[in-house]
Simulated scan of single mutants.
Amino acid sequence: MSKKKTLTLADADLSLSMSKVSYLERLEKLQLKLSRIQQAYLFHGHKAVLVFEGWDAAGKGGAIRRINQALDPRSFKVWPIGAPRNYYLNRHYLLRFWERLPPEGAISAFDRSWYGRVMVERVEQLTPEYRWRAAYREINDFERMLVDDGTRIVKLFFHISPDEQMRRFEERLRNPLKRWKLTYEDFRNRARWSETEAAVNEMFAETSTEIAPWTLIPANHKKYARIAALEAVTKTLANGIDLDPQHLDHQTLDAADKHLNVERELIDSLRARTE
């Protein structure tokens, strides 16, 4: 499987930022485009998987919420992924992800994903080296099968500096509404920053493929990161897709003409689009 040019965390320009005015303008446009994408996916039966990875407090949840705001929950599902329970510990690690893949017409977002195999399980030594190394091939094969089955994949990694992470930890400590996000594990994980960084860079090298490339999101500035994430999602999901509003069939238009008090010109114009 051909690989793209090797990506590393050092490629992220963490100084990138965005004004509030620019952020709100671009967010509105991107959320509208997401709504049109979802409508097209529902009509044509397309499906997509969004993978969100990154450092603790890097802003994955904030980006997911901005996507969630734009989409109908009946065909958009967010899967928060934590440590597997015993049922999955006794089975292949990809099983729980197979079970959560989207049906036709739907989009699924994974807040952490199968990449835990080659990051946290590697760093924490929860999996023997020969098994997490084999996961590179297994993951590439898994994603190839998804793409061959008509699923589009967007993989995002949110990168922040250690100093910015500590600032956000303090913010969570001080804010009662965010305090629930802060755990002992957040601080413990920092002790292995360099090991995790090496694991992430190797993950990029082994799994950023032509069909499922990684997108690195500079996330020191939350507004910039959210827009960069939504732009990456909409670019991949909209590529080659007709986003125009779908036409109504003649039976529906006949019923609308009979039961709704609308202008004849509107019905005639919509009827012409179906012919």
Rank of each mutant, 00 (worst) to 15 (best):
R117E: 05
W132M: 01
R174F: 07
A255P: 01
R172Q: 05
A70T: 00
D249Y: 03
R168M: 05
L101V: 04
A109K: 05
E104T: 11
A109N: 08
E99C: 02
T236Q: 08
W79P: 00
W132T: 07
L266K: 14
M1D: 11
Q31P: 12
N220D: 15
T183W: 02
E99T: 01
Y184C: 04
K60D: 02
A10I: 09
P245V: 13
R167G: 05
V147Y: 07
Y88A: 05
L126C: 03
I37L: 07
T209E: 09
I139P: 03
A232D: 04
Y224M: 10
W79C: 13
F43Y: 11
G62R: 09
D56H: 01
D148W: 08
H259Y: 14
D254S: 13
T209V: 04
R174W: 08
R122W: 01
R36L: 06
F169S: 09
I107K: 06
D11N: 14
A63V: 00
I227K: 02
F97L: 03
L24N: 12
D141K: 12
R65M: 12
M166E: 07
P162C: 07
V120L: 12
F187Q: 06
G116Q: 00
M203E: 06
R131I: 09
L32Y: 06
A48K: 02
I37M: 09
R66K: 13
T8S: 13
S194N: 06
L173A: 15
